[in-house]
């Protein structure tokens, strides 16, 4: 059983958690992403992190609305969320969604929301560095892993190392795609593309990116974003490779390697 403290409950008891885990809409509702959410909570539990979620008080970060051009809706969402978080005196936020991560970190401050915001791979890396999570006995069955950089973690916020360091410390060999880090290719979901059909073209972006990944002959395509996960999973299916290649979040790999 996972332990998921809820902000309002803690507040009623007069407690203030150190960390807010921002689950995000995908992490709350998308079946695939919900597994990632639970995997991350297992890690939080394992490391005894004093955290809470907003639960039913959380609402869309507004990222999708903003990237779709609806600045008004975005700011309404942001201001509403900020009101809730400020009422709970939130200081530090961690999220497994690079889109929420980016928006909360970069676009909330000038609307009154000033928090320290971390992507879950950054946060887990901190737990490891501080000795709160031990990866020494980590054992992965997969031996060739390639990492797909989510645009909103990589280029948008210059974090390329945290997920890679974690994968390496699981004892797996990390193979890089030809387009990687700064030069990484988008999975095709960003900028609200996740919610619409692509424009007319010769192929879909996720299939092209999956080609990049498959060229490295991996057992696992790792990523750190629920949208990338969906896109790459579909890409692998379209390439008829789902028998041999899995798409996993870095948090899921850790849970598997530690047998949590």
């Amino acid at each position: 059983m996972i332990r998921v403290p809820i902000m309002a409950d803690l507040f009623a008891e007069g407690k203030e958690p150190e960390i807010l885990f921002w689950v995000g809409s995908a992490g709350s509702f998308d079946d695939r992403a919900k597994k990632i959410t639970r995997a991350f909570v297992k890690i939080l539990n394992k490391a005894n992190v004093n955290f809470a979620v907003l639960g039913t008080e959380e609402s869309s970060s507004g990222d999708a609305a903003k990237r779709a051009g609806n600045e008004f809706l975005f700011q309404m969402q942001a201001v509403t969320n900020i009101e809730v978080m400020n009422a709970y005196n939130v200081k530090k936020i961690v999220t497994a969604c690079p889109h929420s991560f980016n928006t909360l970190k970069n676009e909330y401050p000038n609307l009154g929301g000033n928090y320290e915001v971390l992507h879950h791979t950054q946060f887990i890396q901190q737990l490891v560095d501080e000795g709160k999570l031990d990866l020494k006995d980590a054992q992965l069955s997969a031996d060739r892993i390639t990492f797909h950089d989510p645009c909103y973690l990589g280029r948008a916020n210059d974090e390329y190392n945290a997920p890679r360091n974690l994968i390496k410390s699981l004892g797996a060999s990390l193979v890089e795609m030809k387009r990687t880090k700064k030069n990484s290719l988008c999975c095709g979901a960003g900028g609200s593309q996740m919610f619409k059909e692509p424009e007319k073209g010769t192929m879909d972006v996720n299939d092209l990116r999956t080609q990049d990944a498959l060229e490295t002959q991996p057992n696992v395509i790792a990523t750190g974003c629920p949208f990338c996960n969906t896109m790459m999973t579909d890409g692998v299916k379209n390439a008829n490779k789902e028998e041999t290649v899995q798409v996993k979040d870095v948090a899921e790999l850790i849970v598997e390697a530690l047998n949590l």
């Binding site: 992490g27 709350s28 919900k34 639970r38 639960g55 609402s59 869309s60 999708a64 969402q77």
Partner: peptide, 17 residues
């Protein structure tokens, strides 16, 4: 409050699944 038509009241359903 989500890009999909799910109720905000169901935001914690993942905990028990």
């Amino acid at each position: 409050g989500a890009p999909w038509p799910y109720s905000q009241m169901d935001r914690l359903n993942w905990v028990d699944e």
